[in-house]
Each structure stands twice: as C-alpha cells, then as structure tokens.
Design a protein around this nucleic acid. Structure first.
Lengths: 211, 211
DNA sequence: CCCTTAATGGGAGACTGGTTCCGTTAAGAT
DNA sequence: ATCTTAACGGAACCAGTCTCCCATTAAGGG
C-alpha cells in the first residue's frame, strides 16, 4: 500500500494517514480480521474484496480504496502480524531453545487456522513482489527475536563462537517450511526434532561459522 | 482434471481420453507450452485462460473444457513436467553428488525462466489441493531419481548404513527452497554449498538414520 | 475410403469482480 | 461547540471472465 506518488504538495496522501483515529483504525481492524478469517477458511485464491467488505461490515469502496487488491490486503495483514511478536523462550540450553523454536513453528503450521493463513500468505508472496517483501520482513523480525538464543548458546560453548545465528535458525525452520510449502508432507513432531538435531550437528561442525 | 464422475455408463468420459491421437495431443502440447511461457513471464496470478487459448492458437472453449481453471492448467503442467526426468549424476563421492544435486536445484531456481515457473507452481499448490498433490508427486519422482546416490555413499561408508536417502536429500533441498519460497532471499552458490555441508554433517552424525 | 462421433472452435450472453461518482459521517483542529 | 475536510458507504457503471450452444473438423474403426 502507500503508493508514494510524489507529484506536487497538493497530492492527497493515501487514505488513513491523516486521520488515523477512531473510525479508520476500527475499519482496518475489522477488514484485516475478516481477511484473516477468509484466508483461514478458503485460502488465497478465494480472497475476494467484495466478500471481505461485506463480512467486515464495511463499504467495499473503502476496501478497494485502501487496499486495492487481494494481494494488497495480504501485504497489510503481514505488516499487522509482524507487529505482534512473541518472545523467544529460554530453557537454559541451546538444544532446548531450538527445540522450542521448532515446536513453535510446527505448532503454527499444523494449526488448521494459522496453517491456512501462512499457506495463503506464502502463496500470495509468490504472486507479488511487494507482498514478498512484506513476508521477508515478517520473518526477519521473527528471526531477530530468536538470535539471542544462539548467542547465549555460543557463550556457553555449546557451538563454536562466530556461528551465524540467523543461519542456524534458518536451518531449523527450513525443513519444516520445505515440507509445508513444497512437498506438502505432514510436519510432524518427529520432523521438527530431526531438524533441530541436524542443524545443531552442523553448527557444532562449524558449518554456520561467519566468514 | 479427470473428474471421475461415476454415474451411469452413459456418462461421457472427460475429453481427450477416447481419441488422444493427433489433434488432441497437439492441443495439449500447445496449451501447456503457452501456459509455461505465461507463468515464466507474468506469474500465476496473471495466468488467464483466454490469453492462453489465444497464444496457443486454440479455441478458448477447449481450454475451459479440458482444464477448467488456471489451477487445473498448472496441475496438468506439473504432470507433464514430472514425465521429463533427468538422471542423477555420479561423481564418485557422496559429497560430490550432493553438491551436484544442490547446484542443479540452485540453477533451476535461479534461472529467470524456470525460477518463475516453479514459483508459480508452488504458489498454485498453496491454493489448491489437487495441484498440491501433483506437486508432491513431481518431487517424489525427482527425489527417487537421486536416492541411489545416497545408497552408494552409504555402501562406500561415507555415511552410516541405514541412513534414510530421502531424508538426506530433503535436508539438502530444504534450505534452498526455504529461501526461495518463504524469505525470498537470493539462492547463492554459497547457500547451496552450505546446505550440502550441513546435511552431510548431520548424516554422518546419524541424524537421518532410519528407525 | 467412408462413417460415426469425439473433440474442437467461434460467438452470444450472463456473471463476477472491480471502478467511479457523489452524498454522508465523523476526526481532529480551533 | 463549531468547522473543515478526511474517510467512508451506497449505487450505478464498466470490463474482463466464464459458460453455453451449435456448427465444423478430424480420430479411429470398419
């Protein structure tokens, strides 16, 4: 969103920016909630501006004006999701923390509702550059929340100093997401556990050492 | 595709099955080629039945009748792609073979044309169950082609006997696809190399041992 | 080579999704 | 409390998609 059309100063800003109070915020909340529900229920291909407007109890003109297209909606939804971050856990050992992380990812992807939303969002990102950026941003913040865990593990000597935290975390998530998006295999607890063990083994071998 | 509506025997089979010769085959070829081009050029969201029909030089009725929807098209395209398999390499060492595999995946995803097709296909699979199955089938055959490589490596003693070949291969691919579909980071040669090293380290630790 | 009918193809019409217009509501400033 | 105007919402409007009907073409069997 935010078209950023810099013409002259007389150009009106994109809607919602000058008077973000009460109504505008309420509309955004209602629309994003409706969008999330729709995605969870019928997936991205069925995301329809008209229906969203109706189920959010909002004029469809508003939805079109502020979000433009289904992809725009998903993009904003991602920004919204990125804002609600949940803190990393601290179990005392790197293995434990990584396991908690993998389990969190697994639980999210496996949950009927959340899983559908993520599937939809990833699908949308494959269709639109802007949306892809939003998705990348979402995961960047998510990963950043967990990097301390790796740093602490390195400090404890569980893995070599200089291990790239992001790289290790990616290694944990990758097998889960690979199954989820590409091969559409079930993401079992077993898979999550193995992802952790594998990533940790590689890390101890110094595979993720920063250059 | 193939609705399998078992009513009475008077029910006509889906088009293209009773006279698959000349014309029918030619139409399918033209349409699938057009679809692939369209996906490579503008992605899944822009896949349009009318346009496909036009650029394939085929009546649009035919396209609607035989494929039904963009998703149906992609699904059939996947079946088509699954038929053309390319053999695994044999460099003499497991590390070399896996590197070749990772490099193949990387090259495919990085290639402007092929990358776009895969992105589109994965996106479509996120929208439709049938398409997801086709995609899963595609990767199953792909993986199966490479399993001998792992078996030979195990026979040479490079990794523990009883290592699950598919699991190891998935571990190699996962980081590449994770970047490609989820975080939309560039899939560099470096990433591919690290994926191989990490997977191999884990395999040597017996992480992928079959129970 | 001829016949039956599967499969295709063009075009009219319906439908859904998206856009525009303009009057109404209420945010935020004084 | 009042005023200005940002933002919303209803309804008419337009466009691109899809569906259906029926004439035409050519597979596959004799």
């Amino acid at each position: 969103m935010e078209q950023e059309t810099h013409l002259t100063e007389s150009q009106p800003a994109s809607p919602g920016t000058l008077r973000p109070g009460g109504r505008t915020a309420k509309v955004r909340r209602a629309v994003l909630d409706a969008a999330r529900d729709a995605l969870a229920e019928s997936g991205f291909h069925a995301l329809n501006m008209d229906r969203i407007a109706a189920s959010a109890g909002v004029g469809k003109t508003t939805v079109y004006r502020r979000w433009g297209s289904p992809v725009g909606l998903v993009t904003d939804l991602l920004h919204d999701m990125a804002e609600q971050s949940l803190p990393a856990s601290d179990t005392g050992s790197l293995a434990g923390d990584l396991r908690a992380n993998a389990e969190l990812v697994r639980a999210t992807l496996t949950d009927t509702r959340m899983g559908a939303v993520f599937r939809a969002v990833i699908s949308a990102a494959g269709c639109d550059e802007e949306c892809a950026r939003a998705l990348a941003g979402f995961y960047r913040t998510r990963l950043d929340e967990w990097t301390p865990v790796v740093a602490k593990g390195a400090a404890r000597g569980e893995i070599p100093a200089g291990t790239d935290p992001t790289e290790l975390l990616r290694a944990v998530s990758a097998p889960l997401y690979y199954r989820f998006t590409v091969t559409h295999e079930e993401v079992t607890a077993d898979v999550a556990e193995r992802a952790v063990t594998a990533a940790l083994a590689a890390a101890k071998d110094g595979v993720f050492a920063r250059p």
